[in-house]
């Protein structure tokens, strides 16, 4: 239950966002499933005790899932990544940063702001690592085939 409910919420949120992105049919379901898988990975990585690392691993899980789905279903990887990453977006971080700014708590404002930036960086690095590796693998396979 501790794992199930948040993942169900993540799935519902992603499904609703897919509608806003005009996705249809099966790709809507599979893309939203990516969001749930990503959040499950995040929760399962809790023992590392560092939420930036957790976000990094969860993003890698999402990227791997998206690259696989894009190849299996012969669709661009864009939509899968876009939707599945949404639960990771540090919406809370942005909000609390703003709130500390208004209240005038400069110390917490800087701390929360930098932490939020760190999360965004972890997300970007996670996607980047996987997509770079996939490209590398693709190029190696191509050169082997040609040789």
């Amino acid at each position: 239950m501790r794992y199930l409910l948040p993942c169900v919420y993540a799935f519902a949120a992603c499904a609703a966002f897919s509608i806003a992105f005009n996705m249809r049919g099966k790709s809507l379901v599979f893309a939203s499933l990516g969001g749930a898988i990503g959040w499950l990975a995040y929760l399962l990585c809790a023992p590392v005790q560092n939420d930036i690392l957790q976000f990094f691993f969860a993003t890698m899980a999402i990227s791997v899932y998206s690259e696989i789905m894009a190849r299996v279903r012969r669709e661009p990887v864009t939509g899968y990544l876009l939707v599945a990453l949404l639960p990771m977006v540090p919406g809370g971080g942005i909000y609390y940063t703003m709130e500390y700014c208004i209240v005038g708590n400069t110390e917490m404002f800087l701390e929360t702001g930098l932490h939020t930036l760190g999360i965004a960086g972890a997300l970007a690095m996670g996607i980047l690592l996987v997509s770079s590796l996939v490209r590398l693998w693709h190029i190696i396979r191509m050169t082997r085939k040609n040789a």
Partner: peptide, 23 residues
């Protein structure tokens, strides 16, 4: 109020925009 606002404002946060610039 914070949870409501964060949840509702996720609609406006163009998810990937934050990460896509780094990519």
């Amino acid at each position: 109020s914070d949870k409501i606002i964060i949840g509702a404002l996720m609609n406006l946060v163009p998810g990937i925009a934050i990460t896509s610039f780094m990519r």
